[in-house]
Amino acid sequence: MTKDTSLYPIAVEDLTVAYHEEPVLWDVDVTVPAGALMAIVGPNGAGKSTLIKAMLGLVPRSAGHVHFFGRSYAEERQRVAYVPQRGSVDWDFPTNALDVVMMGRYGRIGWVKRPGKADRAVAHEALEMVGMRDFASRQISQLSGGQQQRVFLARALAQDADIYLMDEPFQGVDATTEHAIVRVLKDLQARGRTVVVVHHDLETVPEYFDHVLLLNVKAIANGRVEDVFTPENLRAAYGGRVDLLLKQEA
């Protein structure tokens, strides 16, 4: 493929990831255009989270390349923010919400140097954007699941990146949090950022996103929601079960 990858915020080429010689992702090609708000959907075990982790080099790639603005992740680290799954950390850790959000600044601050006043201001602003201003000094174990998710989102906002990769931010959150997250996603898009979200609720895809990647180990379809979010493609990604998932749209 002779595509100019620098034209895209994210270009994934021929990506294969295997755990114990079992492919989890098989020859995946995806390009994400600038300013896209993209959902990654697919059944359980389709490799959605693995795709994001492989992009960031958190799991080893068996084959393929990932380019951010045509360059490697290591070169463009500062421009990529990552929201891991909420369950991936220990929320009993002795720290408060502001401190967690401040961690989003660490990449810019670099080794050894301490966060300064400006970083603190950015962190407060990020908390404000997710409706958590009043919880800055709250111990993180005392936050509800939805509030913890918003803290994670605020941490990514504090990174002030051009690309946002989010792993299941809507997982198990309350309605307030869901609305807050959607508002932030739309706001990021309005500011020209590129956002990719692992998502599990097919029903809300057309409402929340404008691009979608249908994934099931292989990339089934990738493009604008109105073009590729079709029953045929969904059936290809999910198998027979999709009829149940889509009955409202029929």
Binding site: L56, L58, R77, P84, M103, Y106, G107, V112
Partner: peptide, 18 residues
């Protein structure tokens, strides 16, 4: 800062280059 980040969230530490 590095110890705190790597202990709380090793994934983010790796992603940020620590």
């Amino acid at each position: 800062k590095e110890l705190k980040l790597a202990t709380f969230d090793a994934g983010l530490a790796a992603a940020l280059g620590f």
